[in-house]
Design a protein around this nucleic acid. Structure first.
Lengths: 165, 165
DNA sequence: TCGATTAAGTTGTTCCGTCAAGTGAGTGCC
DNA sequence: GGCACTCACTTGACGGAACAACTTAATCGA
């Protein structure tokens, strides 16, 4: 029942990973907020909508893709709606459900924010690693997600988005 | 001046990394809060103090080790002080500075929280990777920290803690 | 078909982090 | 030695996120 402590190498790796995990969101958020007035999470919400058919998703589906709880998503979408970047309307097929759709202004905001965001990602991550490391990182992240996201909520993003209710 | 977009592999890696970075803090926080009533950041603050000589650090030094802004740290330490897990007292050598010291209760809280926390780290990260991946991850994290933390604030943690004022 | 259960969102409270401003101690310069 | 300037925090206000409670719609069973 006792858990073995981390040895020296494990601890060193862990501490470095923690540092990355703590610092990276701040870097992304700071750049996006400064240049585009968007949170990284808001950016991600807009991006997910932009890739959906008719730029529309049900709140639940959007929550799955963004790994957000429904309350959190509800607040964020309300604020985005106040800024007229998305619009909400009741789902025709299910009276309980709400659809969120990206507006033209929302698409423009996303398009305006994307280049700077991609540049930040390149500068701080992609271009900071060798191609071999980038490949290793993909495998590592996949292994971690098996434990962190056993239901594969976020995994739908890259594999076929089979959204079968 | 134009930034090249991410190609397919880069994007796949990036999306997975984002997922890890979004999910991992939540997992750590949830376990610690549930089992020990501590935030991961609070745990980290206590841990840094526990390793310092006389279990005491100046606020600025503690902020460096935990990657916290001074206002954030000030609030957190105040709350920890109200729970009597740490105590603050003015620094004798510098009238402007404040020292934070881990109390006995704070040490006990840390000792009580550590096993469960380590088990979570093992379950979700260390044991989820092969030894080779763990080694790769260390190198990757080091490369990323060069960009994310150019001043090496957090880097002091693993290399000699030469804390020369 | 009608009552109970589940599902989908919304709303409200509380907590935490960030930003801007303030306080008081040290430092440098004339 | 006094005045400006910097440093090391602290404090207060604001915004976002988690949690719990509520509302309304669909479904399931008898």
């Amino acid at each position: 029942m006792e858990t073995p402590w981390l040895d020296e190498d494990e601890l060193a790796t862990w501490v470095r990973l923690i540092a990355v995990v703590e610092l990276l969101p701040g870097v992304l958020d700071a750049q996006l907020r400064r240049d585009s007035g968007l949170t990284h999470f808001e950016y991600f919400v807009l991006a997910m909508l932009s890739e959906a058919p008719d730029r529309t998703l049900r709140m639940t589906a959007l929550g799955r893709r963004t790994n957000a709880t429904l309350p959190r998503l509800s607040h964020v979408v309300r604020r985005l709606e106040e800024r007229e970047l998305v619009e909400r309307f009741p789902c025709p097929e299910d009276g309980r459900a709400t659809n969120a759709r990206l507006t033209t202004a929302g698409w423009d905001a996303l398009a305006g924010a994307a280049p700077g965001h991609v540049a930040t990602v390149r500068e701080h991550v992609v271009d900071a690693l060798t191609p071999a490391q980038l490949d290793q990182l993909r495998g590592i992240a996949e292994s971690l997600l098996v434990r962190l996201d056993p239901d594969g909520r976020l995994t739908d993003l890259y594999d076929p988005p089979a959204d079968r209710p």
